[in-house]
């Protein structure tokens, strides 16, 4: 799994110029409609077996990207190629068999399980929808899945509310993996859990990846979780990827001021290492995605902003091999780091 991006693994997923605009306001006749630019031109590709982390503040469109890939939403523009097939051009019927290949683990373990279904029925649902297995086969498979995610199979007749958050998330993972998908989109799978449980679930996801050769898109709002599990990390801001780099590269040679801000926001565990003078780099709030600023969308919060930043929007460009940055002055951040 590790560093699969360096090997010449086949490309599993390719996202090209993905855009998602949500109409808002206006009358029912369609006058004065305005659009929220939830995802505003996102492109990346993913090799089989690797884990791409997507981070960003709430509202930056990271979950929307996940929902677009599994076709919970219909994109406004752009293409998604899965295993070479353009899934954006497919009808729901054509796409149904492909759904087996990509599944999602959800954020809220309390809303992701139907409270009126038993664990067995929850994990059996994928088989009912996608296969014609006999009930004996389904039982065997469900028990195998429960074992795989570390749930005792004696729990199968219990209801979700009898479980803790971590156990519920395991049930959700079992359901997502039941059909042996290739791609699993983890939409903030640990952010609703206790810190002690987070590590367990992350380790479980890592182990399962190795065992089942899974490819992950791991969505989170903080860098530390993503760092732990990802091979590459994409940093999103207001619907766009600001920086995309291999995990180590991103942390050691940060190029985008926003990434620098996110890194700065990670709390320091050791109080003696804390810098009293240290002012947070990131201040203020996100601009409204309804009226995006002209020029670079980060420039209102960027301490390195120059005149050009407010006028011309930068493009995501490969600055060093494998390291993409969307900034007019990408090196400023890293140079300043070196001089420190």
């Amino acid at each position: 799994m590790s560093e699969a991006y360096l090997k010449k693994e086949p490309c599993l997923l390719e996202v090209q110029g993905l855009k998602m605009l949500f109409p808002t306001g206006g009358s029912i006749l369609g006058k004065n409609k305005r659009y929220v630019h939830a995802v505003d031109g996102v492109s990346f590709s993913l090799r089989a077996g690797e884990t791409l982390g997507i981070v960003g503040e709430s509202g930056c469109g990271k979950s929307t990207v996940g929902n677009l890939i599994v076709r919970l939403l219909k994109e406004t523009e752009g293409r998604i190629l899965f295993d070479g097939h353009d899934i954006t051009a497919m009808s729901a019927r054509q796409f149904k068999p492909l759904r087996k290949e990509m599944q999602m683990v959800f954020q809220d373990p309390f809303s992701s399980l139907n409270p009126r279904k038993k664990v067995f029925d929850i994990i059996a649902e994928p088989y009912h929808i996608q296969t014609k297995m006999s009930s004996a086969e389904i039982r065997k498979n469900v028990e195998y899945m429960m074992e795989l995610v570390g749930l005792d199979k004696s729990y199968q007749n219990r209801y979700p509310h009898e479980f803790s958050g971590g156990q519920r998330q395991r049930i959700g993972i079992a359901r997502a993996l039941a059909l042996k998908p290739k791609l699993v989109i983890c939409d903030e799978p640990v952010s609703a859990l206790d810190v002690s449980i987070q590590a367990q679930i992350l380790n479980l996801l890592k182990d399962l990846q190795e065992e089942l050769q899974l490819t992950y898109i791991f969505i989170a709002h903080g860098l530390p979780t993503v760092q732990y599990i990802s091979d590459r990390i994409a940093v999103m801001y207001l619907g766009k990827i600001m920086e995309l780099a291999p995990e180590r590269e991103l942390f050691e040679h940060t190029m985008h001021p926003y990434t620098e801000g996110l890194l700065d926001a990670i709390p320091v565990g050791d109080p003696t290492k804390r810098d009293e003078e240290d002012k947070p780099i990131l201040e203020g709030d996100l601009p409204s995605p309804l009226n995006l600023p002209k020029g670079c969308r980060f420039c209102s919060r960027c301490k390195y902003a120059q005149q050009i930043c407010a006028q011309k929007e930068p493009e995501l460009a490969e600055v060093t091999p494998g390291h993409y940055v969307c900034c007019h002055f990408p090196l400023i951040a890293s140079e300043e780091k070196k001089s420190e």
């Binding site: 599994v70 919970l72 599944q103 999602m104 959800f106 809220d108 992701s112 649902e125 929808i129 359901r175």
Partner: peptide, 22 residues
């Protein structure tokens, strides 16, 4: 809007299935 309905959709469930099961 619940995630278990979303999960069912990503599994390819039809509207009828979702209405009757969820």
């Amino acid at each position: 809007g619940k995630e278990f309905v979303k999960a069912s959709k990503t599994l390819g469930a039809s509207s009828g299935y979702i209405i009757f099961h969820h």
